[in-house]
């Protein structure tokens, strides 16, 4: 029952579309140098071309192809989101396991910190940190991870707590199983699916947060994520009074919205599948 494989057909219809979209996006991000017909950092046409057969998504104020920018932006946005989510998920997961397994003072300490972190308003704090320490991709990933580990920590802790009461764990313990054995034989296999869903959700959150920071002008200026394209477009003087926004603002905007929605749909489906299995 437990070892049943995750099948594509167990997703809902919207879930299937979302997965296909994500695969397409990841494919675009990885192979962007081969897909993009134009450079992402050099002009390849005249400024403000509306979408046409040469420039599929049009061009920006410098005549740079927007399709290439979206492709390369997907690289940055996805890698920032995924790495922040992985750090937060794994770090939070480890802390959650420790808190759940050892209990007592370790648990109290970790949960107190979690309580404090949850009350802190994260966006203002990220803005402050971004402003003081300078906008580099490394800082952004670190800050995002720092503010999102509490979710996984709480979820994993409660999972470990409930597992510790299960008979098979108690039996294993009575045979002398230590923390390491229990961890690799029982905890991790059980926790991994939950952690995976949490990390997927965190990825979307991190991508949005990065877009928000970049939109405020706190993104890494050397790596053009989707948020930075938006920031660029919005700061263009005539953007409200011309039709340029129809492709310049809308393409990154719709890209982010689609990404967020498909991650939401996928994680919802995954949760459903997980719950059915249990």
């Amino acid at each position: 029952m437990k070892k049943e494989k995750l099948k594509f057909s167990s997703f809902s219809n919207s879930g299937k579309i979302a997965i296909l979209f994500m695969i397409l996006l990841i494919f675009m991000a990885i192979f962007s140098p081969y897909i993009c017909p134009h450079p992402y950092n050099l002009p390849s046409g005249s400024p403000f071309e509306s979408p046409n057969r040469v420039h599929w998504f049009g061009t920006d104020d410098l005549g740079i192809d927007l399709f290439s920018q979206i492709c390369y932006g997907a690289r940055i946005s996805l890698s920032v989101g995924i790495s922040a989510a992985l750090i937060a998920g794994i770090g939070g997961g480890i802390l959650g396991i420790l808190a759940g397994y050892y209990g007592g003072i370790v648990d109290k300490l970790i949960m107190r910190i979690v309580d404090i972190m949850i009350v802190l308003p994260d966006l203002p704090m990220m803005i402050i940190l971004g402003a003081f320490f300078g906008p580099s991709i490394k800082n952004i990933i670190f800050v995002l991870a720092f503010f999102s580990w509490t979710g996984p920590a709480r979820i994993i802790r409660s999972k470990v707590l409930s597992m510790k009461k299960e008979n098979y764990i108690l039996v294993a313990e009575s045979y002398g199983a230590g923390f390491g054995y229990l961890l690799f034989k029982h905890f991790i296999p059980e926790i991994l699916p939950i952690l995976m869903v949490t990390i997927i959700k965190l990825t979307s959150k991190a991508i949005v947060a990065e877009a928000g920071l970049a939109f405020l002008g706190l993104g890494d200026p050397t790596s053009k994520s989707w948020g930075l394209i938006l920031n660029h477009a919005i700061n263009f003087r005539g953007i409200y009074f011309t039709d340029f926004w129809k492709w310049w603002v809308m393409t990154p905007l719709i890209a982010i919205i689609f990404l967020v929605l498909s991650i939401a749909i996928i994680s919802r489906d995954l949760e459903k599948i997980l719950n059915e299995k249990l």
Binding site: I239, W245, V260
Partner: peptide, 16 residues
């Protein structure tokens, strides 16, 4: 959908 993305859709759709 995060609020600031909705805000941008509204700004460009309804205001601009």
């Amino acid at each position: 959908i995060p609020s600031f993305l909705i805000a941008m859709l509204l700004l460009f759709g309804l205001a601009a």
